[in-house]
Nucleic acid binder design. Structure first.
Length: 413
RNA sequence: CGGGAUGUAGUGUAACGGCUAACAUUCCCGCUUUGGGAGCGGGCGACUCCGGGUUCGAAUCCCGGCAUCCCGACCA
């Protein structure tokens, strides 16, 4: 991509109505655009990041057998009445509208009801189980207070996976596999070392559910963590009983603020019983399916990466998340030789399959470097009169700042 | 939803109740410059959030909306 054609521009200053680091940097660098409180659009750079995160999530979900689907946002009130979650008294985050043909419609804030009804059309026998399905789709929640940039919004992307099992043991096996997959996802996102599988309230079916909490001052949750033991407990369930159950003492845990980047929990047969998702066992008896629900918000994950990894100069993306692999910067592009060389290198890298953002703008070096730091692409390659003279290219690692002179052959290797 | 704060060019700020609403930046033109957001000159860009009211006169004071941010509550 030629930066001269990229319609977004960087800004020196953040808009005054954004306080959170994630929104300030993402807006300044041109990744996102704010529409209203709690509503953001994703621009070319931002969409690339989201798609990269989605790719990581897809790979890990597919690896544990998840089958991707795409469920609608519009929701049928009748379905939600079967679980008593349609009324505004029961669920206060609904966005609703009216059909012109008559009747109500809802905008999905979760898809548990919908997927359960879908599966009731296909699950017949114990031979059909177990399996899992997921989708990446917008969720709408009428939050009374949006905040923290893209961390808590009213319309947001969510990956939600649902598991369907016959027995508690079968369910638990998948639950743990999914928990492991989640840790692999957060590791690939570059926030694994600060993310803890955290005990949280489990609802009616289990003692605990699990959240994936990333330690950060930008977080709105409080967890009690022991980093050495790799264990954390959400404040909301921390009491003597919980400590005893987990074999922990209060004084070995440290209170920390954290961001909930994912959560997984057992649903038991709550939805399958209400909606009629059953299977025939070996004796031909109809048994309700045991379900689990597993969520990650890609946009919140993106915000978390920015909160954790950025520095005073701007964003620092991990390689797998970055919108481009290389930021090619030409300095002194009015020099024919420099321009020609940079153009040629851009083509060679692109032909090789490397995603390059090529700063071909007619701008001074300082501005280009500052923008490059802000945008946060992992590797910078500089082409200038100086590099042409030495015959080597200058590469700069965004994270460490380490400068290395390499030959073109090495770069293309 | 309770409390607090704020709405002025694209962005960030200024302006005693009184001149054509100012400055910086962005953007456009010209010259100069060319490895860390350069310099000089010129130019475009604002119904001062909306609607009322007070006043000879309102960006400024008053009332009502709306919007945004922060704290709290809420948030499988």
């Amino acid at each position: 991509m030629r930066q001269s054609r990229l319609f977004t521009k960087t800004r020196k200053e953040a808009p005054k109505d954004e306080v959170s680091k994630n929104a300030q940097l993402l807006i300044r660098a041109g990744y996102i655009h704010k529409e209203m409180a709690g509503v953001y659009s994703f621009l070319p750079l931002g969409l690339r990041v989201i798609e990269n995160i989605n790719t990581i999530i897809r790979e890990e979900m597919n690896a544990i057998g998840g089958q991707e689907v795409f469920m609608s946002s519009l929701q049928d009130p009748e379905l939600w009445k079967t679980t008593d979650r349609w009324s505004d008294e029961t669920v206060d985050v609904w966005f609703k509208s009216k059909l012109k043909a008559g009747g109500d419609i809802g905008f999905a804030w979760t898809h548990e009801e919908m997927i359960t009804r879908i599966m009731s059309s296909y699950v017949r026998s114990h031979k059909d189980l177990p399996f899992s399905a997921y989708h990446i789709q917008n969720k709408f929640r009428n939050e009374v207070r949006a905040k923290s940039g893209i961390m808590r919004t009213r319309e947001f992307l969510m990956k939600d996976l649902y598991s369907f099992s016959r027995t508690e043991a079968e369910h638990n096996k998948f639950y743990n596999e999914c928990a492991d997959a989640y840790m692999r996802i957060f590791t690939r996102l570059g926030i694994g070392d600060k993310t803890f599988k955290t005990f949280a309230s489990g609802g009616a079916f289990t003692d605990f559910s699990h959240e994936f909490q990333t330690l950060s001052e930008a977080g709105e949750d409080i967890v009690y963590v022991n980093e050495e033991k790799n264990i954390a407990v959400n404040e909301e369930v921390l009491d003597d009983t919980a400590l005893a159950t987990l074999g922990l003492t209060r004084d070995e845990l440290t209170e920390r603020k954290s961001i909930e980047v994912g959560n997984i929990f057992s649903l038991g047969t709550k939805f399958s019983e209400a909606i009629g998702l059953t299977y025939a066992n070996e004796e031909g008896k109809e048994i309700p399916v045991i379900m689990g629900s597993y969520g990650i918000g890609p946009a919140r994950a993106m915000g978390t990466v920015v909160e954790l990894l950025s520095d005073e100069k701007g964003i620092v993306w991990p390689a797998e998340v970055a919108p481009f692999a290389v930021h090619l910067i030409e300095i002194g592009g009015d020099d024919e030789a420099v321009r020609a060389y940079a153009e040629a290198l851009y083509k060679k890298l692109s032909d090789k399959g490397t995603l390059v953002l090529y700063d071909d703008r007619d701008a001074r070096a300082g501005e280009k470097f500052a923008d490059s730091d802000l945008v946060g692409i992992p590797k910078r390659v500089v082409v200038s009169k100086k590099t042409l003279e030495t015959g080597e290219l200058e590469t700069v690692d965004r994270k460490t700042g380490a400068v290395e002179m390499v030959s073109e052959a090495e770069l293309l290797a």
